[in-house]
Nucleic acid binder design. Sequence first.
DNA 1: CACAAAACAGAACGAATGTTCCGAAAATGT
DNA 2: ACATTTTCGGAACATTCGTTCTGTTTTGTG
Lengths: 198, 198
Amino acid sequence: MAGRPIECDRAEATRKATIRFWEHGYRGTSVADLVAETGLNRFGLYGEFGGKKGMFLKACEGYADQSRRCGLEPLSKATDPEKALQVFFAGVVASQLDEAKPHGCLMINTLSEGAFQDPDVQRVIREHFDTVEKIFAEVLARAVGKKANAADVRHAASLLLNNLFGIVQMARLKPGRPVLERVASDAVKIAVRTAKSS
Amino acid sequence: MAGRPIECDRAEATRKATIRFWEHGYRGTSVADLVAETGLNRFGLYGEFGGKKGMFLKACEGYADQSRRCGLEPLSKATDPEKALQVFFAGVVASQLDEAKPHGCLMINTLSEGAFQDPDVQRVIREHFDTVEKIFAEVLARAVGKKANAADVRHAASLLLNNLFGIVQMARLKPGRPVLERVASDAVKIAVRTAKSS
DNA sequence: CACAAAACAGAACGAATGTTCCGAAAATGT
DNA sequence: ACATTTTCGGAACATTCGTTCTGTTTTGTG
């Protein structure tokens, strides 16, 4: 039962790997890159994460978790739902324009990558966006009030998710901050209006 | 001036290569794949296209060209602009749901791939979406009529492009045809209304 | 202080990558 | 028919890929 204790800091390694995957994608990241970036050695990488794919899964799970904790939880707790949505989307735009971060969103990037074909990866991504859409719907319902129609709210949430996808992709073309901000702002206004009208 | 005549059909080879890149991306397509798919041999591939990147560029150019010819030209020529936009977006949805075609859109897929970092590739993609947005704006202006405000129209075109991006990404999650169709339909309605209101 | 257990560092693996090169085959011009 | 020119088919190239394996070092336990 004795033995050398592990050196690796799983959390920190996952964080580093996430950045790398986020910026270069699954295919664009080699195990050598991961070793260099995370400080792990191959032994640890395979022992603790089960290789490249395992590491990618952990990265995705962590990213989704963080996204929901930082972005979505404030939405659920907000007293002014529409305002909260505006803040959320403004945050998305700001995040996309932040040059210190990789471009795009790891979840959305992965949607159009080969890695999405993997069942485990697909599960994480789908689960994430299911949650996002669900929370959108919940917040929209609160914004509308008691007379909310469930179908309209669900549809408005789809619109919102659609625009979220759009904004992140659009940001890659660097159309300028005002354009993105107005698109984001309008997307929220329109979604709220859609959720109301039947 | 004599010599064996070339066997390769450039147009057909480009078409085949386009399918492959569209489905698997730049990174996910190897030269061996291209050789197998197009029927070209390596000699022809390098001689006629200048290698993998050259082939990808030709594929992108051809795809953009075809997209504009089939999707956008009807928009420009339409007598009923709003109806034409509806038809256009319905076509996009149908295309995304068509299981005979690869998923997504080569242009949009490439936006979030490493290949987008290449200046030549980036030029083709940007040019394409500039054109798309410009035609959206032109059609929206016609839908609004003489009293169209240029800034509003431009913004509405951004909204439309944003939703186009969204729909294509959203389709990967396979949310069901009705959802996509309603998102598409609403996106057009909203854009037209936005272009009108000042 | 040994002994065993675990992790480290990196060599080694076969397969796949994009590209280049070369002998064989084929078609044209004389 | 012959020589020349060009393509063909695939071998060969050096890298790089993800993964495995093998000594060596470091730790905890008896």
